[in-house]
Computed example of a mutant assay.
Amino acid sequence: MNILLLSEYILMAALAIFAVATIRITTRKTIAMGLVGVGGLSISVATLLILVNNIYGLQFCRDIATALVFLGPVGTIAFAKVLRGD
């Protein structure tokens, strides 16, 4: 096993722990903490999907990760505008 593959597996484990932490942040009572948690979760899932693409060669993971990265901030901005009342 080469060192790059080992480091990718370690990064995947760290991202899984980060995803669990952001889920815990998302379940807080305030809306702001929910938005922060969902933003962090989408970043961790997108990075995890890119790693799966590199390790296993599944090309659709890259497309899903790109959509998550682009649509995550758009959804956050739209939700903030609805809450503000504009």
Rank of each mutant, 00 (worst) to 15 (best):
G34F: 01
L51Y: 04
R24M: 08
G39L: 06
Q59K: 10
V36R: 07
C61P: 00
T27H: 05
V20R: 05
F60A: 08
L35Q: 09
K29G: 09
L15E: 03
T22Q: 11
F60P: 00
S44H: 03
V52F: 14
V45H: 06
T26D: 01
I25L: 13
A14R: 11
G40C: 06
A16L: 15
A46W: 04
I25Q: 12
T30W: 02
V38H: 02
T47A: 15
L49H: 07
L49M: 14
G39N: 14
I55H: 09
T22F: 11
V52I: 15
A65P: 01
A14H: 07
L51I: 15
G39M: 10
L58Q: 05
A19W: 03
A65S: 11
L15M: 13
G34C: 04
I64H: 00
K29E: 12
G34P: 00
Q59E: 12
L48V: 04
L35N: 05
I64P: 00
K29I: 02
T22V: 12
L48E: 08
A67C: 01
L35V: 09
G39Q: 13
S42N: 14
L35W: 04
G39H: 09
F18Q: 11
N54P: 00
T30C: 00
G39A: 14
G40F: 06
R28M: 05
L41Y: 13
N53V: 01
R24A: 12
I23L: 13
I31M: 09
A19M: 13
A32S: 07
T66L: 10
G34D: 00
N54T: 11
A16V: 14
N53I: 03
R62T: 11
G34W: 01
M33P: 00
F18L: 14
T27I: 04
L15N: 04
A16C: 15
I50W: 10
A21K: 09
L35G: 07
A46R: 01
T22L: 01
D63Q: 07
A32K: 14
L15W: 08
F60Y: 13
I50Y: 14
L49A: 15
G34A: 05
L68T: 01
R62S: 11
V38M: 14
A13K: 11
N54V: 07
L49G: 04
L68P: 00
V52Q: 12
A21W: 06
L41I: 06
I50R: 09
K29P: 05
T22N: 10
I17S: 10
V45Q: 06
L51A: 06
T22H: 04
L58V: 14
A21T: 03
G40I: 03
L51S: 07
A65Y: 01
F18M: 12
Q59G: 06
S42Q: 10
T26Q: 05
L68S: 01
